[in-house]
């Protein structure tokens, strides 16, 4: 329950700063491509640079960054530690949830000559990235920016959010089971 309040508080701060700065991660790249306006692109690069620096500082200063820097093997280790961890955070996670998340981190894909493995995750990352970039530009902003636009009274952005949350339900109950059957 603590984590729900923390995420709400952090969301409030992030939403406030995002509205005041008109920040948009897709818009940064789009504005630079269209009109050579680097204002928002600087924000994107500042986010990436600051996150890199803060992650490094936190890893020195004793922050709980399991498996930093992130590779698949260490991510599985972090799941094994998850149960003790959430006992501390006053949340109890059932075993089967942790085991399902553990199984999801197994790498599957096509074998390539030379002992390489082209994972399904890499393929979907490239394909879905192209789609997200194209459609977010058409929709005039990244998901974060659409929340801010909707909060400032844009009715198109309300429709975007309606599709957004309906998409989560469609993916979770209709598309994800099909994908899991295809892969396994």
């Amino acid at each position: 329950m603590i984590i729900a309040f923390i995420s709400l508080l952090f969301g409030l701060i992030i939403g406030y700063t995002a509205q005041r700065s008109r920040m948009c991660f897709i818009g940064g790249m789009r504005d630079y491509m269209l009109v050579q306006d680097s204002q928002l692109l600087k924000g994107l690069l500042a986010f990436l640079g600051a996150a890199t620096v803060f992650y490094y500082l936190a890893s020195i200063a004793g922050g709980d960054l399991y498996g930093y820097p992130w590779f698949e093997r260490e991510q599985r280790k972090s799941l094994e530690l998850a149960r003790d961890y959430h006992a501390f955070a006053a949340c109890w996670i059932p075993d089967e949830v942790v085991i399902a998340a553990y199984n999801a981190t197994k790498v599957k894909g096509f074998a390539l000559p030379g002992g390489w493995l082209l994972s399904y995750t890499a393929l979907t990352t490239v394909a879905a990235g192209l789609g997200i970039g194209y459609l977010s530009t058409v929709a005039n902003g990244c998901p974060l920016r659409q929340h801010v636009l909707a909060a400032s009274g844009n009715r198109g952005a309300y429709m975007y959010l309606a599709g957004f949350y309906l998409g989560a339900i469609v993916f979770n109950y209709l598309i994800a089971p099909v994908f899991q059957r295809l892969i396994s």
Partner: peptide
């Protein structure tokens, strides 16, 4: 666009952020 971005975002495991 919203629905497609959500579905593709769940495939890629994240939004741009």
């Amino acid at each position: 666009c919203g629905m497609a971005v959500m579905i593709l975002g769940l495939l890629i495991m994240g939004c741009p952020t």
